[in-house]
Design a protein around this nucleic acid. Structure first.
Lengths: 235, 235
DNA sequence: ACCTTGATTTAGGCTAGCCTAATAATTTCA
DNA sequence: TGAAATTATTAGGCTAGCCTAAATCAAGGT
């Protein structure tokens, strides 16, 4: 017995992770940016994999020291795991920003491309892109970009659905994953940086009416949930 | 029996190939751009894999209709295989050109990065890069870039080692794979576009002396083999 | 014509990741 | 509290790709 004795033989974290592993870490980070445990089934749902597949991978990742797993309770990233996850988040968001800025991509199509590229770019390339962009702090959807050390500042945002009638706020962030949704929001002019005023809300989870750039739009509740705003009052 | 009856059940070529398959096709293309058969062991050597691994993959690829294999004779790409290979060659060379032009890469470091990115980029991204570059016909090492339909024009080149003393020629192409070699060549000013005159050749495969940009350099025979030139006389 | 040599293929085994079906643990609710 | 529902894990199996060791084929020299 000559190891540092935490778990029975700890296989060091390999210097390069597989695509799968990177995707798991990103998913777990997304499910619990604050560090609360994420459930197996949530991970499975997000990655569109079966629950047993996730169970198996979770076991391997915890043996690698990338996360901690309490059976039937959930998983939490270790520091090493969170670092690796944030590295992927940084890559993803910088790639999106780069493709939009320099290669004419739209905010609706850029996610799929970044999803593959993030596993293939080298760290130096990521930093070159960051420099070419002038070290941006957010991607085209308003998602904050962690710095190279993994520090990230998540600005306080609330769903548009949570605004009160009469309130005015600025759109900060929009969930990036559904291209069609992004195209629809863009067609309405509901993009980050735009000021919106809530004009009406129907009861029982009904639609809301917002005014932006002088136009009024009726928005369904699930859409109003993925558009994040910052009230003029905050910070 | 309801198939078109060439081989006993032909599994259609999948729309996306794996990284491994893409690498095999590229390797086979490189070993036989003219279509002569490539040997198992040459493929194994180029990809740094064991011969049995290559044997197994070759079997699968021939079942997929990407190549034809005559046991103990060699493999030849089919039209579909060659098309897939040229698609990878186009990607690789355009990525190299893009990274050098827009992201400050040097010709010595760009190969490794392109080697990974070529498997991850989408066709539209490749075409956007090509457009941003103004549809170049060659990459930073002078290697010609196939067009989007897979047509490629390989300019007639001969190794510098094959020149006669007193001849003058233009450097056209340099093997891209060894970063250190590229750095050395660049330090001597021996890059594509430069005119060189052969001043001396030592017998028995000895070094050659070339003059370029007014300077003389002594070059070992294996280096003189990977620098390709076009004589002023040729086309 | 035979035998050695080198290239190639077959045999058998391994890991990473995925799956479905079956089992087990936890939570919920009557 | 105890059954039902939910959630997670184990069992067992699959493919892609890689490996080493063993067998086999193709040639070339005597």
């Amino acid at each position: 017995m000559n190891a540092t004795a935490t778990t029975p033989s700890l296989p060091a974290i390999p210097d390069t992770l597989t695509r799968s592993v990177e995707d798991y870490l990103k998913a777990i980070y997304r499910l619990s940016p604050e560090g609360q445990p994420a459930s197996t089934s949530d991970i499975a749902h997000l990655l569109e994999l079966s629950a047993p597949s996730v169970s198996g991978m979770v076991k391997r990742l915890s043996e690698l020291g990338l996360l901690e797993h309490v059976p039937y309770k959930g998983v939490q990233l270790t520091d090493a795991g969170r670092r690796a996850a944030l590295r992927m988040v940084r890559r993803h968001r910088l790639i999106e920003a780069y493709l939009v800025q320099f290669l004419g991509y739209g905010w609706d199509t850029v996610h799929a491309e970044a999803e593959r590229l993030e596993h293939a770019v080298s760290d130096p390339l990521v930093e070159r892109m960051a420099a070419a962009l002038g070290h941006p702090v957010a991607d085209p959807h308003g998602d904050p970009i962690p710095d190279a050390d993994g520090a990230i500042h998540e600005p306080a945002c609330t769903p548009l659905a949570g605004m009160s009638v009469g309130d005015t706020a600025e759109i900060r962030r929009v969930d990036e994953r559904d291209a069609e949704r992004l195209r629809y929001l863009a067609s309405l002019g509901l993009v980050p940086g735009v000021a919106v005023t809530l004009r009406d809300r129907q009861p029982f989870g009904g639609p809301v009416t917002v005014e932006a750039s002088g136009e009024r739009h009726v928005i369904g509740p699930e859409l109003a949930q993925v558009v994040l705003v910052r009230s003029e009052g905050d910070r």
